[in-house]
Write a protein that binds this DNA or RNA. Structure first.
Length: 421
RNA sequence: GGCGGGAUGCCGGAGCGGUUGAACGGGCCGCACUCGAAAUGCGGUAUAUCCGAAAGGGUAUCGUGAGUUCGAAUCUCACUCCCGCCGCCA
């Protein structure tokens, strides 16, 4: 949630920035609503002050005088209640409007939708094949490390079984990235994947119907299945106050992720590129509000190190304002080269959400002067296991259909080539 | 799933329905004492929000939400979480 104060202080800036995301904001109307709220708030508080004074007077008085004051108090109570009702309505409608707004894009984020995303750089050499490269689905089925058909039988479309060396490869990726993370000061986490509706809401991911359509929700228990570990790690520190020196607090979390993919019928239906359930290692950072841009760079750098170490060509994309998730002020994606598709596909995403989430979660930092301030929260991808497997399979495929294991993973997998099994 | 106990400030821990933002102890900060430190003494020590140029003042907050009352940390109801015991269970 953005702060009404920032709108009051600089309505034009906020309106212009939000327009970059294609969101129209009538600041004048919003401020007027807030003004009305303040007027009523003042009235309510004055009435309450009167009530407080009167109740003290009741205590001090006796006899007929006392009875009279109690009668007066009854009337005052009615009056206060009526005003409180009005205040509550105003507050609710203001909150309703405010929660719908996404975060204010960073100044260097381009305007527009997905088609305005910008390539920042391309890294690595695309492999050259002396044969027609296959896609991961073909390779996976042939090698016997992927079974989509039986998954469809058991769970439906967009599910998969990983088998044999694919499983070892998954474990190798997890172990590798965890080691890297630990070395860079991240705390390893294995979080719950079911979280309270309240927490999901505070993370800013269920404010609109579109948001809701993307999530699995267990109505009976009031719990959401997380779409990423971010949603379970962010609320960890809800209502807590960090010491300045404790920041940045970095976590590296492994979890299964669940996505309904409601709006993607017929899209990416082959293999495991887009599935309802996948495992992912996620990076998360709580940091000093003045240092989140720097931290964003740190996370991106960490991600790039991973893909370089894996030896997979990728490009770095600055997302346009309209293509970012609502809490983000800036999102930078990494897209890996997939020879089987002949194109780059998204594998990583690093976002700075500034205080959008921390404001609702009430996560603050105590400054040296004793003042409290909302921390900034950032999330980024370590390895999305499924898509990383795809990238490895397609980039490291050999003419005979076998797959070379990237060097850095060989010691974890225990072999250098994956063959039919 | 069943039965019991609990939730108060940074921590521990009081709290007859009426100056309780909250005793008391500890911690922390400042000052004094000291060459310095310890010990001791004195003082201070929540957050949010509104009005105000400021000084200052108002309001709210004792797990959360509703209710009773002129007045609720204190009474009632619901919910959440924590701790025990039984049952079930990887």
């Amino acid at each position: 949630m953005i702060d009404i104060k920032s709108i009051r202080e600089n309505p034009e800036y906020v309106a212009t920035a939000l327009k970059k995301r294609g969101v129209a904001l009538d600041t004048a109307q919003l401020i007027e609503l807030d003004d009305r709220r303040k007027v009523v708030l003042l009235q309510v508080e004055e009435l309450r002050a009167k009530q407080n004074m009167l109740s003290e007077e009741v205590q001090a008085s006796s006899g007929e005088d006392r009875n009279q004051k109690i009668e007066e108090g009854k009337k005052l109570k009615e009056e206060t209640r009526a005003q409180e009702e009005i205040l509550k309505e105003l507050e609710e409608s203001l909150k309703l409007v405010m929660t719908r707004f996404p975060n204010i894009p960073q100044d260097d984020v381009p305007e527009g939708g997905e088609d305005q995303n910008q390539v920042i750089r391309q890294v690595g050499e695309k492999p050259v094949f002396a044969f027609e490269p296959k896609d991961h689905f073909q390779l996976g089925e042939q090698l016997g490390i992927l079974d989509v058909e039986r998954a469809a039988k058991v769970s439906g479309s967009r599910f998969a079984y990983l088998k044999n060396d694919a499983v070892l490869l998954e474990l190798a990726l997890i172990r590798y990235v965890m080691d890297m993370g630990i070395r860079s000061g991240f705390t390893p986490i294995s979080p719950p994947v079911l979280i309270r509706a309240e927490m999901m809401q505070k993370m800013g991911y269920v404010d609109t119907p579109e948001d809701l359509a993307e999530r699995y929700y267990l109505e009976k228990n009031g719990l959401f299945l997380v779409g990423t570990a971010e949603q379970a790690v962010g609320p960890m520190h809800a209502d807590e106050v960090f010491e300045e020196k404790e920041l940045p607090r970095r976590y590296i979390a492994f979890s299964t992720c669940f996505r309904e993919e409601a709006g993607s019928y017929g899209k990416d239906t082959r293999g495991i590129l887009r599935v309802h359930q996948f495992d992912k290692v996620e990076l998360f950072s709580f940091c000093h509000p003045e240092k989140s841009r720097e931290e964003h760079g740190f996370l991106l750098n960490f991600e790039e190190d991973l893909w370089r170490a894996l030896g997979i060509p990728y490009q770095v994309m600055q997302l346009a304002a309209g293509d970012m998730s609502r809490p983000a002020v800036s999102t930078i994606d990494i897209e890996a080269w997939l020879p089987g598709q002949g194109r780059y596909r998204e594998v990583s995403s690093a976002s700075n959400t500034t205080d959008f989430q921390s404001r609702r979660l009430n996560i603050r930092m105590k400054k040296k002067d004793g003042k409290l301030e909302f921390v900034h929260m950032l999330n980024a991808t370590g390895f999305p296991i499924g898509r990383t497997l795809i990238a490895i399979m397609e980039n490291y495929q050999q003419e005979d259909g076998s797959i070379t294991v990237p060097e850095i993973l060989q010691k974890f997998v225990g072999k250098s080539v994956i063959e039919k099994q």
